[in-house]
């Protein structure tokens, strides 16, 4: 069996606040294999971005990893600090954020930024790095790459900027890319272009991708496997087709049913009552039980089971017939 590119084991993130310690990520485990796209989906506050930030060591203090392990290509990386982490971040892990403007330095030309990144992480000469920068821009479909290499980020449109960010994330040939809501700020027609680009590049290079998004449609079309998060915990993890068409966790089921497409022909949309609990007001037992249509006494008392021996973290997973 080959080692997965990324392996997260029982990861927990804690933030001490004056009201007590909150856990935005609570005992999450998943793997991403070479060339695989794992979709991490959840609503705002589900901890999906926090888990991604933990992997790249970008947690804002006082948030910190309180338990668990993160392995990258067989090396444990969660204890890494400072320089070692920075080196790893650019070389082995590429990052794509929601707002391309925040990941580009507005004062440097994109050519400089690309060449800089290549020089830092690959043993090549300056001229070679510049050549590669142009190639990287061509690869992400920027027309006239050779001329635009001396442009500044603000001279690009939103979609083009996100292409530059992708070029920047991939130019050091990382083995893992973390894309945190890469298309949320973009228009639908541009979003499709970016998703297609990301998919093609990662397939060609065998890069593993952690795709964090709230959009079930993007997940369905892009991911191989999907991890559904709810209130810091993994609710369901599995093959994207299985999870989306026959969800076993009532939350996934509700989420799928409430997308407008799923309710076509009905007058009302399916809705999940209530909203996600605040981190400071977590209910006892399974975090989803107050909104769950089939919660029982056990759900109110015992925390939901770990995923180890099942697809859904639920005491009473919905089997195929229930999900019909």
């Amino acid at each position: 069996m080959t080692t997965p590119v990324l392996s997260i084991r029982n990861l927990s993130v804690e933030i001490p606040t004056r009201g007590g310690v909150v856990k935005p990520v609570d005992g999450v485990s998943y793997d991403i294999a070479k060339g695989e796209i794992l979709g991490v989906v959840g609503e705002s506050g589900a901890g999906k971005s926090m888990a991604g930030n933990a992997v790249i060591g970008l947690l804002n203090p006082p948030a910190h990893i309180s338990a668990g392990e993160i392995w990258l290509n067989g090396t444990r990386i969660d204890p890494l600090q400072g320089e070692a982490m920075r080196r790893l971040r650019g070389k082995e892990i590429g990052m794509i954020f929601q707002d391309p403007l925040t990941s580009l330095n507005p004062l440097l030309t994109i050519g400089d930024q690309l060449a800089e990144t290549i020089l830092t992480h690959l043993p090549v000469s300056r001229s070679e790095a510049e050549k590669r920068a142009v190639a990287a821009l061509e690869e992400v479909g920027i027309p006239g790459a050779a001329e635009r290499i001396d442009s500044y980020p603000h001279e690009f449109s939103g979609g083009m900027r996100q292409r530059v960010v992708i070029a920047l994330a991939l130019c050091a040939e990382p083995s893992l890319v973390i894309a945190d809501e890469p298309t949320t700020a973009l228009d639908v027609s541009v979003q499709a272009q970016i998703i297609a680009l990301l998919k093609r590049l990662c397939r060609e290079r065998g890069t593993a991708v952690m795709l964090i998004t709230h959009d079930m449609g993007v997940i369905a079309e892009t991911a191989d496997r999907v991890a559904v998060m709810y209130a810091g915990r993994l609710a369901e993890l599995g093959d994207v087709r299985d999870v989306l068409t026959a969800p076993q966790h009532p939350y996934t089921h509700g989420l799928m049913a409430s997308t407008p497409l799923a309710s076509l022909g009905q007058r009302r949309l399916h809705q999940i009552p209530g909203s996600m609990p605040r981190l400071t007001q977590m209910p006892d037992g399974c975090a989803f039980h107050p909104r769950c249509p089939q919660a029982q006494d056990k759900c109110r008392q015992a925390p939901s089971p770990d995923l180890a021996d099942g697809r859904a973290s639920c005491w009473f997973p919905m089997m195929a017939e229930a999900a019909e």
């Binding site: 027609s189 499709a192 297609a196 959009d215 079930m216 449609g217």
Partner: peptide, 22 residues
Amino acid sequence: LLDAAPRTDGFGREVEPSQGEI
């Protein structure tokens, strides 16, 4: 627009995305 919108049942859908931006 209709083609580009991601679909929750579009597993592995390969759309030829439209070119250009607004």
